[in-house]
Write a protein that binds this DNA or RNA. Structure first.
Length: 768
DNA sequence: GCGTTTTTCCTTTTT
DNA sequence: GGAAAAACGC
């Protein structure tokens, strides 16, 4: 072996080395958190090229985010000797499929200029579908419909829709019709949603032999990262991308599977050995990232899951500090406690990286406020990302319309932005005309603009708009990206509109546009076209924006996957928030929440703080007065945990003031009585054992707090939060109970019928 | 058809 | 507490 290769293998432990150099067929690497998963993938790529003489472009590695792909690519290139031919291909499933489809779109009846619809576009299309089918929102919300449809799409081939999709569902027939109409609309706009990218790529490979063969020829070595989060569609794609004898290397950790809601199928990794013959399975169990105590705490939590392969993660690292549990009174106090810890640790002068991880995006708010007030520089991922800002979406919608005239969502968005006298009435007529004549919205606009019958008032603005778009469309292909964007923003009147508004917001929007132009300049330098720019904007993920040099980063637990930090704060650890209230009903969902907790905890290198708040302002109808600490906290052994009581402050009464709960008469406020909270006692016991914990209430404070837990009440008592069964409406949850005279009016949310107001006496409700 | 004010509803998690 | 839809007045 050349000295060089000895070098790059020298940094690996025996198991890693084995995984890197094994080439005798399909390989599954079960890699625990922090066990050097990325190193295995990058070194394996380098090994294949440098040692096995594999042509770089015969290697395809699929990762979860573009950022991960890019980083791996850079590490690989740094290790490779000069003078090779081509680069290995590293990409996400979605970008891979996108590229494949752009090349072969015609075979599936799209043009290569197809648009990619984001979740906003999706729910707008869905809204239209439901309206056309006269399904009121009270029965099916557009976004809910989108997620149901998306899940079905991620587990079926397109030609299976009519039979296989929704097969477990009570309303399968209804959903199939919704899906069919939704699909038809997207197709008519020459558009694909995220799921279509996978679905169509699969169809392309399965049904077009020459495409598949060419691709298999190109992909002799396939590596897949985060295999635990692949869904059925991705699994089927993997099978199409390679062929026996597979050189397939899948790397994953079933304990870190956190995308079940998106169709991720744990079976993919648990049954890998059945799917591929003669598979070799290797385990990486030495953790290089975290301290012993952090690892012990995280392992004890995830051990409570049933659906997993047994493995023992260990480390040679220091024992480290105890994991700390911060118990605060309110969400604001929680944020302040975290801020204080960060300031204290920063005072020690270390160059530590910090992360605040939460279950849901809305939790970021208090942290932002506190960090701003205390001059703690932070970066926030997700929430309103750059591409989600209105002005950026508008300009991108213009580009989308220029590239793909069929893109009705883009057209709809910008036809009257800035205002050009094309209002709702005209739009209604355009839509009707399009539907009647089987035209796209754009074709309908063109027709109206030419129609001599039409009044000038309606016609002129349309004609002007058509002319503008046609001109821009002609110029676009030949102009450099940044210059084109800039001149477009000018000519469509967008800049003028913002300048005339002349408010602080409009000025910041102008700033954002400048930033977009700057970004375009950079991409232009890398030889990217308008099309690439649009794809980048659609397929970018939140963690793609993560900057490891930033000292404090706020993000959801999901976005934190694959990242690591010196100090991690896992906040909002309360029953109902984490685990999330929507996950309490079924065991598989709880297990997923637990894995999410495991992922969060194992992001920490040196210090881990877990935090919860007794009261939290919320608009969730499931919210129930005082919070209980998350069950995950009670799963951590006392020997590695230290509880810090972030005492009762004067704010507790204001923390207890949800606008919703304020409407409920004091007397009827009752703690949730459902059986999901069966561990109340163990939780209290757990806190007492640790000293600190929830002290007994006494004196004046008790008056400001909600009444202490009492019995759920008799059969005629329906406090908010109670789950009920109705003879016609099925299952529901009491949102509100109002006593009026001797009647009680109940406001109930039924899962299949939406909200209803019923008089309790006549309702025939049964508690469940 | 446009701009402002009022009301509503909301909150899982993401490519 | 804030964005998006609806309602209202011009």
């Amino acid at each position: 072996m050349p000295a060089e290769s000895m070098d790059f293998l020298a940094g690996l432990n025996p198991q890693q080395r084995e995984a890197v150099t094994f080439t005798g067929g399909p390989l599954l690497v079960l890699a625990g958190a922090g066990s050097g998963k990325t190193r295995v993938i990058t070194h394996r790529i380098v090994y294949l090229i440098a040692e096995m003489g594999v042509r770089p472009d015969h290697i395809l590695a699929v990762t979860f985010t573009n950022k991960a792909a890019e980083e791996m690519c850079q590490r690989v290139l740094a290790m490779l000797p000069e003078g090779r031919s081509g680069n290995p291909r590293l990409s996400t499933f979605h970008s891979l499929c996108n590229r494949l489809l752009r090349r072969h779109a015609a075979r599936l009846g799209y043009t290569s200029d197809f648009s990619i619809y984001d979740s906003d576009d999706q729910s707008k299309v869905m809204k239209g579908c439901l309206q056309e089918m006269s399904i009121p929102e009270s029965i099916l919300l557009p976004r809910k419909a989108c997620s149901i449809v998306s899940r079905a799409k991620n587990s079926s081939r397109r030609n299976e829709f009519a039979t296989r999709a929704f097969r477990d569902h009570r309303d399968a027939d209804l959903y199939r019709r919704v899906l069919a109409l939704y699909d038809q609309k997207l197709r008519a706009s020459n558009a694909m949603d995220f799921d279509d990218l996978l679905l169509n790529a699969l169809e392309l490979l399965e049904e077009h032999d020459e495409v598949r063969l060419r691709h298999q020829e190109q992909t002799r070595h396939l590596l897949i990262d985060e295999y635990q989060d692949t869904n059925r569609l991705q699994y089927l794609l993997v099978k199409q991308l390679t062929q026996p004898p597979y050189d397939l290397c899948a790397v994953g950790d079933e304990d870190q599977s956190i995308y079940r809601f998106r169709g991720a199928h744990l079976g993919n990794i648990l049954e890998f050995e059945k799917d591929f013959p003669n598979v070799r399975v290797m385990k990486l169990e030495q953790n290089y990232r975290s301290t012993q105590r952090i690892l012990e705490a995280a392992s004890s939590v995830v051990r409570n899951n049933r659906e997993r392969k047994e493995k023992t993660l260990w480390t040679r690292n220091d024992p480290g500090d105890l994991v700390r549990c911060l118990a605060s009174n309110s969400g604001i106090d929680e944020a302040e406690a975290v801020g204080k810890v960060i300031l204290a640790l920063k005072r020690d002068g270390l160059d530590d990286t910090f992360a605040v991880l939460y279950r849901t995006n809305f939790q970021s708010r208090y942290f932002e406020e506190v960090f701003k007030r205390n001059a703690i520089p932070y970066t926030i991922l997700g929430g309103l990302s750059f591409y989600a800002r209105a002005e950026i979406k508008d300009l991108i919608a213009y580009l989308r319309l220029l590239r793909n005239p069929g893109d009705s969502m883009a057209l709809d968005r910008i036809i009257n932005v800035p205002a050009r006298g094309i209002g709702e009435t005209t739009m209604d007529r355009l839509r009707t005309h399009a539907a009647e004549q089987g035209l796209s919205l754009w074709e309908s606009v063109e027709a109206f603009a030419r129609d001599p019958e039409l009044s000038n008032r309606a016609c002129c603005p349309l004609a002007g708009f058509v002319h503008l778009v046609q001109q821009l469309r002609m110029e676009m292909p030949s102009s450099p990206l940044a210059a084109f964007l800039e001149s477009m923003a000018e000519r469509i009147g967008y800049v003028k509109m913002l300048e005339e508004e002349n408010s602080p917001e409009s000025l910041s929007r102008l700033g954002n546009i400048e930033e977009l132009v700057r970004a375009a300049h950079e991409w232009e330098g890398q030889g990217l076209s308008v099309s690439d720019f649009l794809d980048q904007a659609s397929l970018a993920s939140d963690s793609d924006n993560y900057d490891s040099k930033s000292h404090v980063t706020l993000m959801t637990l999901h976005s934190a996957k694959g990242l690591e930090f010196d100090v991690v704060f896992l906040v909002g650890m309360e029953e109902g928030l984490f685990p999330h209230g929507q996950s309490l009903q079924n065991h598989a969902d709880i297990e997923e929440e637990r894995r999410l907790c495991y992922v969060g905890m194992t992001r920490a290198r040196r210090r881990l703080y877990l935090s919860w708040a007794r009261f939290r302002r919320t608009f969730d109808p499931f919210a129930l007065g005082e919070n209980l600490p998350s069950r995950f906290l009670s799963e951590i052994p006392a020997t590695v945990l230290e509880t810090i009581e972030n005492g009762y402050s004067s704010r507790e009464s204001s923390a207890w003031s949800s606008p919703f709960q304020a409407e409920v008469p004091q007397k009827e406020r009752k703690p949730y009585a459902g059986k999901s909270y069966d561990s109340v006692d163990s939780m209290k016991e757990f806190l007492r054992r640790r000293g600190g914990g929830a002290p007994a209430r006494s004196g004046s404070r008790a008056a400001a707090l909600p009444p202490p837990p009492t019995d759920p009440g008799g059969p005629n008592d329906f406090p908010p939060g109670t789950r009920v069964q109705h003879p016609q409406f099925g299952e529901g949850v009491i949102l509100q109970a109002l006593k009026e005279g001797d009647e009680t009016k109940l406001n109930i949310h039924f899962s299949n019928f939406g909200r209803k107001k019923l008089i309790q006496r006549y309702s025939n409700l049964v508690k469940i």
